[in-house]
Amino acid sequence: MADRDTLSPRRALRPVGGHPAFKGPLIALVVIVTALMVGGPLAVIFASAFSSGIAAYGAKLADPATLHAIFLTVLVALVVVPINIAFGIAAAWAVGKFDFPGRSLLIALIDVPYSVSPIVAGVAYLFVYGAQGLFGPMLEAAGIKIMFALPAIFLASMFVTAPYVARELIPLMQAQGTDEEEAALSLGASGLRTFILVTLPNIRWALIYGAILCNARVMGEFGAVSVVSGNIRGVTNTLPLQVELLYQDYNVAGAFAAASVLALIGVATIIARGIVERIQRKAEG
């Protein structure tokens, strides 16, 4: 310690956990476990999907029920993701830009779907719109079918993804405050114009990020949709349900082909997220 003053503090003080005998093995351990635990499942999907060649793979995907499941999954995403974006913006605007009694309760409420099992969500919807649910008899009398049909898939997907966009936007809008918007308003801009020209550019990357995550969850949701959809082959079967159906039918190759499409969407989601983050970092300098 006598010569401490002659050394720069950075050199003298090794960061915690910076010893090579600790650092190297720890990195290696994390990399190996991750390669096995995350890389393994991804690799096995594509290896199994393509095990009998590209032609066989194409034929499995061209199965009419699988094609319909892909169509339905895309349709659900096209309906639910925009709704979730609209809700996310509204929630973040209310919670991020204003202070009001009950604000923290509202934030907690937005997060609830994160903690609720998708199966519980599905069952809960059954008790609202199903034959034995709150509105079931009323809807039946009016001839409106929600359960075991497309509307139920939309609703269940809206439940499980409720926090996705809002959660990305709230901290950002809160941190950005209201100064820029107030300046625009004081210069005579309308509320809508202020939102489009001032707020939206500030939140666009977080918005895209949230929408990408929301899309992945909508396309991949299994538990909630499998309760409310009724699993009707070629009618209300989304792609994740089709994977299970094929697997139950002992059509393992078909299940892997369908799963590989979903896995590709998942990988694309991760890559898209990386690109968005990189652009964002560049934009921030």
Partner: peptide
Amino acid sequence: LDAVVDIPFALPTAVAGLALTALFAKNGWF
């Protein structure tokens, strides 16, 4: 490595289940 962390969230649960079952089956890689 940082990007890979999120794969379990991006991969549909049914796909994860199918893949893990194939990996850990008696004749699987693991």
